[in-house]
Design a protein around this nucleic acid. Structure first.
Length: 121
DNA sequence: GTTTTGACGGTCT
DNA sequence: TAGACCGCCAAAA
């Protein structure tokens, strides 16, 4: 689904697409997305997701390398992120994903870089 | 046009 | 083992 039109090749849009590609009940971390998109910086991933509000991007499935819901404070309700994850079957405790290693989903192993081509210019 | 910040990651101390 | 620092690229002020 393209929420962003034909110009969906901007780096933040790529982040959105990868985030949307995350299957329910799974989570990933910023570094994985950054590495997959060859962005090289996980900060931009989080920064991009910061603007995803109201864009239909399941940002709640993206956590930091520690499995912590780092961005929960950014959500309308700090607990909303945890609620959404638990709603999808992801067990969360103390703002941290339980069995994070099992719940972790690597875009590099499931997505094709060719479909998420990063614009050179 | 320059400076600061940003939902982070990895490495060093 | 835990804490602190630097590095990444881009956007907003």
């Amino acid at each position: 689904m393209c929420y962003f039109g034909p110009m969906s090749n901007s780096y933040f849009t790529l982040v959105y697409r990868v985030t949307q590609a995350i299957p329910p009940g799974r989570v990933t971390n910023y570094g994985a997305i950054a590495d997959f998109l060859a962005l090289g910086s996980s900060r931009m991933v989080g920064w991009a997701l910061n603007k995803c509000h109201g864009k239909g991007v399941p940002a709640h499935r993206v956590v930091n390398s520690k499995g912590e819901l780092s961005g929960r404070n950014m959500f309308p309700s700090p607990s909303m992120m945890q609620e959404l994850l638990e709603q999808e079957g992801v067990q969360v405790s103390k703002d941290k994903v339980i069995n994070f290693k099992e719940t972790f989903w690597s875009p590099t192993e499931h997505l094709d870089p060719d479909e998420y081509d990063y614009p050179h210019e």
